[in-house]
């Protein structure tokens, strides 16, 4: 009795959500491999063991921040205060742990707390009062930077003062993967679970995908958005501690003006700046790709002065591809309209 009725365009074009996303991430992965292989062919030293773990270590910070920023961008917001928060957390953490003679674990705890508080303030302003995140976090950028400078007051902490465990942390590796990058992977793993396997995370996609509809179906927009900002801040705080470990020196200018690099990594990783689309894995790959390109340019002997221009070009290509993909699905709607036209005539 029940016969199947055809759906109207699933036969025409089958965009499977998973394959689409997979395509984007596999796309970045392919570019990654391509760049690495090509560079290695020209300069074999590029991909040697040391080079790889060095690369991962250097990706840790931006990677960590990209993982942090992704849920915020998916919810159609932005956090420009992320780099200031990192710098501030680096300095404040150094100050606190040096004062108390604390080790690695408390350091990360302190850093995470500092970041979480910053994120919570952003979150209250953006999610609670529904102020535009661009303006709020731009303001937060200034406030944090000012507090950081004021507090640091030209002081700096160098390797001698900082706990040696923390200094070693950046050099230690498991199977060539630096500890710090392992930490990023762990955070990313949690992020993937959160964004993919909890209602909490899925709600963020819904909020970014269609904000009015999210209100209508009763999604708790405030708590979801608020926590996204707290997460973002927390990871910025953790990245600050990584900064201590990697550079073994911190002053008030730590990680200054790096916010747009993080946004670039996230967008290159396929997270749509208008929300609703993208994954944490993609953002992490985007961060790696940015770093690999820098490494490749150095290995190829391209003047390092071209780095930034190439970053910009890459970002333009990334958003261009996003646009083409969405245009393609639009033209398919047009095709369906053509069907209607045939019916009319």
């Amino acid at each position: 009795m029940i016969q199947k009725i055809a759906a109207f365009q699933t036969t025409n074009f089958k965009i499977n959500a998973k394959t689409l996303l997979r395509r984007r991430e596999s796309g970045i992965l392919m570019v990654l491999v391509l760049v690495s292989v090509a560079t290695t062919l020209i300069n074999p030293r590029f991909i040697s063991g040391y080079g790889l773990s060095d690369l991962l270590l250097n990706t840790s910070m931006v990677g960590c921040l990209a993982v942090g920023l992704t849920p915020v961008v998916i919810a159609r917001h932005i956090d420009l205060s992320i780099a200031s928060a990192t710098g501030f957390s680096a300095f404040l953490t150094a100050h606190i742990i040096v004062g108390h003679g604390w080790g690695v674990v408390p350091a990360f705890f302190v850093g995470a707390c500092v970041g979480a508080i910053i994120g919570a303030v952003n979150g209250v302003l953006v999610a609670g009062l529904r102020l535009p995140s661009l303006v709020v976090t731009l303001g937060a950028l200034y406030i944090i930077r000012g507090i950081d400078y004021q507090f640091a007051n030209n002081k700096q902490f160098t390797a001698e003062k900082l706990p040696t465990d923390l200094m070693h942390l950046s050099q230690d590796k498991i199977y060539g993967v630096p500890y710090l990058f392992c930490l990023v992977l762990l955070l990313a793993l949690f992020g993937v679970w959160w964004m993919r396997f909890t209602r909490f995370g899925r709600d963020l996609y819904a909020i970014g995908s269609n904000p009015p509809a999210a209100d209508i179906v009763g999604i708790k927009v405030f708590s979801r958005t608020f926590f996204a900002f707290v997460w973002c801040g927390t990871l910025a705080g953790i990245a600050g501690v990584m900064y201590l470990s990697i550079y073994a020196i911190v002053d008030s200018a730590a990680f200054l003006n790096q916010e747009l690099i993080v946004v670039t990594a996230v967008v290159i990783g396929g997270v749509n700046i208008f929300g609703g689309l993208g994954t944490i894995v993609g953002a992490l790959l985007g961060a790696v790709l940015l770093r690999v390109l820098i490494g490749a340019l150095v290995a190829l002997g391209v003047a390092q002065f071209w780095q930034q221009a190439i970053n910009g070009l890459l970002l333009l290509i990334a958003i261009g591809i996003d646009r083409i993909l969405s245009r393609r699905s639009e033209t398919k709607i047009e095709r369906i309209r053509d069907e209607r036209k045939m019916e009319i005539s």
């Binding site: 967008v267 930034q308 970053n311 070009l313 333009l316």
Partner: peptide, 11 residues
């Protein structure tokens, strides 16, 4: 776009 051209022009 302008985040990208920010890097591009400075580059």
């Amino acid at each position: 776009v302008t985040i990208a051209t920010l890097a591009l022009f400075r580059g």
